[in-house]
Design a protein around this nucleic acid. Structure first.
Lengths: 241, 241
DNA sequence: CGACCAATTTGGTCAGACCAAATATAGGGC
DNA sequence: GCCCTATATTTGGTCTGACCAAATTGGTCG
């Protein structure tokens, strides 16, 4: 991961977080470019590039006469990642909403993939599931293969809309959760059951069944993540004392 | 709709479309800022602002030494709208993929809304559905109220992730379809059935039922839109002759 | 109190300049 | 002839200062 550290990006990051922290109300005038340039000790050009990014994120609307802050509701989903990192512990509600949403997308992906796969692809998928069964020691260690399975399914179903959204969400949440040290603990049984059901769905080319299995899995994942975040919050609070 | 027509936005639009039209391969070097400035008869500042937008869209990655074109797969979903408008008639496959994806999101919205609604909100939703039943002359004329119903549901369920994605998709597709003159014709019967099922789901607070009704509706919508696009294509081809 | 007009502010763009990092090129060693 | 290194060039990142047009602001007048 190449971390770009240009001045304009830094300015954009700071301003983005300020907006996400509700330091401006929707509709408010945004500080002028010249003021911001003064505040960040930067040139107007650098500030303008930063504002250009914020505009693309849907956080501000810039017009001659002045820029204005927009409602977070009309922003791009690219703000979800930054929204998670606003505090030391991610907002559990937001994470839960993400998992629920991501769950239905993965379910749809699985359904389409199973239904659309060629015989060879079906075999390939089966192999991957079987490999996962053999190596299902715990949730974390199977992550790479699990991701590969989802990748493959995504490639098979070939729905660009779904792929873009899923990629975006994944990039913004999954990686961050790992970074933040949120590691959900799933029961071995439920993983086994998920993989078993997936295998059956592949054998019978039953997309609906695969989708149902995924939905069920994400329901359990939601609970596990909720617990993991709660625990993490307690740890941090204890440290604070 | 305020159409912003600044030079930097125009440049960004042109370059975006060029990338979406695959005029550069993924990984290719992008023309230098100075070259682009010359080509568009603009200053480097204006070009840099445009590139800043493309970068936010995930279409290019700019680094000292040169900018490079990225895979469309890793782009933001904000490119879906422009992707639709590349040709006179939108890509039917893309539209179909959108409708399927949007369908599951609306279904989830409906499910959550019905399950989470307060008694008053439930009544409010019921009223809206009833009003729709009374006015269900055709799909197009009921659009405003239909949208309002979805808006209300979205507000009730209060899932930011889902809302942001839905808003984004809606803004990029629905409005464009209207502009492009794609008007699907749904059977009156199926609309009646949808509304009827919704009513039942509201009466029994049955989120799953509401979701199922929405899914079914979008399946039919997909077919209708497919037909509408086919027809539109034929009209245009006839004109070309 | 409201409508109108001037002064100021604000964004949009340009030109020219400098630096540091990345790339391309030429040269020397094997 | 091939590979590696040192140099030259290109490229992005930023700054300064300037000008224009549109929007906002504030004051004035009816």
């Amino acid at each position: 991961m190449t971390v770009i550290t240009t001045l304009s990006h830094e300015i954009a990051d700071v301003l983005r977080d300020e907006i996400l922290r509700q330091q401006y109300r929707s509709g408010d005038r945004f500080p002028s470019e010249r003021d911001l340039a003064g505040r960040f000790n930067a040139s107007r050009g650098a500030v303008r590039e930063a504002l250009s990014q914020l505009e693309q994120l849907g956080l501000i609307r810039v017009q001659p006469g002045g820029a204005r802050v927009q409602s977070v509701d009309s922003a791009s989903i690219a703000i979800l990642g930054p929204l998670l990192e606003l505090d030391a512990v991610p907002d559990p509600l937001l994470v839960d909403q993400f998992l629920q949403t991501f769950g239905v997308m993965v379910a749809l992906t699985a359904k389409n993939a199973v239904n659309a796969a060629s015989p060879e692809q079906l075999i390939q998928l089966k192999k991957m599931v079987v490999a996962l069964v053999g190596d299902s020691t715990d949730f974390e260690s199977m992550q790479p293969q699990w991701r590969e399975l989802l990748e493959t399914m995504s490639a098979i179903e070939n729905n660009l809309v779904l792929r873009l959204i899923s990629n975006d969400l994944k990039a913004q949440f999954v990686d961050r959760m790992m970074t933040l040290g949120i590691r959900p603990e799933l029961k071995k049984n439920s993983i086994k059951q998920l993989l078993g059901t997936l295998r059956v769905s592949l054998n019978n080319r039953d997309g609906e069944l695969a989708a149902a299995a995924m939905l069920e899995h994400f329901e359990e994942l939601r609970e596990a993540v909720r617990d993991a975040i709660t625990e993490r919050t307690e740890i941090i609070q204890r440290k604070a004392v």
